[in-house]
Simulated assay, not measured.
Amino acid sequence: MISMSRRTLREVIFDRLNDVFMLVICFFTLYPIWYVLVNSLNDGNDAMRGGIYWWPRMFSFDSYFAVFANDGIMLAMGVTIAKTVVGTVVHVLFTAMVAYAFSRRELIGRRAYMMLGTVTLFFSGGLIPSYLLIRDLGLLDSFWVYIIPVMFSFFDLIVFQAFFREIPDGLEEAAKLDGANDFKIFRSIILPVSMPVVATIALFHGVYQWNDYFTGMIYINKSELQPIQTYLYRVVAQSSSNQMMAATSGTIAKSVSSQSIKLATMVITSLPIVIVYPFLQKYFVKGFMIGSIKG
């Protein structure tokens, strides 16, 4: 009885310490986001005095009005939305089709293809060969530079393939008896039953497309094709925020600063992913668990 009570007490203490530890981790993870949000909602000139940690001292939306009044930001936001939607759809469909072919045991040379693909997970040609290839393909200063180079991922293929192998062969055999070809089987049977893994890969690639600033910085010179993350990078790294302040109306410009505009831009660019992610998280977890255990 004594040993049982001691063991139970140790477990309770461990659980409480674990709760405290996780709360501390959550605080250090979430507070920087809260700090940025609070300061972006404060009067810009007042925020420069410092001392704002938990709640706005002079509540104001003027920094957000200044951001949305800038045509360059709105155009960059449109480019980001377009490349995220188009890029995610193309990537998921193309990678799923290739993975479906790889999951067929009758595919000739499947092991050789898998070995070659595995090498690409660890080694790449580097930035200079990639740039030369993009240039020779005519993708510089083109919207399709966001889509074509990343329309396939071998890592995502492995995730798709593990899921497809769990689908009963009887579904395909029944469809073939009804006269369906491989493409119709893939479109009408494989994809509908693969929604968990499709949502997982869509979340992966959608977040990548939304957060990608490097592609626009390296391959795009036209301002009208820059995504919001590249635009944000230049606002933070250069003096673009001062130019944005100069473009705002006189009433708003009195209550904003270059720092408050930077913070408001960060919030605006991060908000869509923060909103969408919780709704797709359940598919994210399920997509990785399915296929890991065979029953």
Rank of each mutant, 00 (worst) to 15 (best):
T80M: 05
I81T: 11
K83P: 04
V85Q: 03
G87W: 01
H91Q: 15
T95Q: 02
T95H: 04
T95E: 01
A96E: 00
A96Q: 04
A96G: 06
M97I: 15
A99K: 04
A99M: 05
Y100L: 06
F102E: 03
S103R: 07
R104P: 03
R105S: 14
R105I: 09
L107R: 08
L107S: 08
G109I: 07
R110F: 04
A112W: 13
Y113C: 12
Y113M: 15
M115G: 12
M115A: 15
L116P: 04
L116Q: 08
G117T: 08
T120L: 06
L121T: 08
F123H: 05
F123E: 07
S124M: 09
G125C: 06
L127I: 14
I128H: 10
S130D: 09
L132P: 09
L133E: 13
D136W: 12
G138R: 10
L139F: 10
S142N: 13
F143H: 03
Y146E: 00
I147Y: 02
I148F: 04
L157C: 06
I158N: 01
I158P: 01
I158E: 01
F160T: 00
Q161H: 12
F163E: 00
F163N: 01
F164D: 00
R165D: 08
D169G: 15
G170V: 11
G170H: 10
L171P: 04
L171A: 06
E172Y: 12
E173S: 10
A174I: 10
K176T: 14
K176Q: 14
G179E: 06
G179D: 08
N181A: 13
N181T: 13
N181E: 12
F183D: 09
F183S: 12
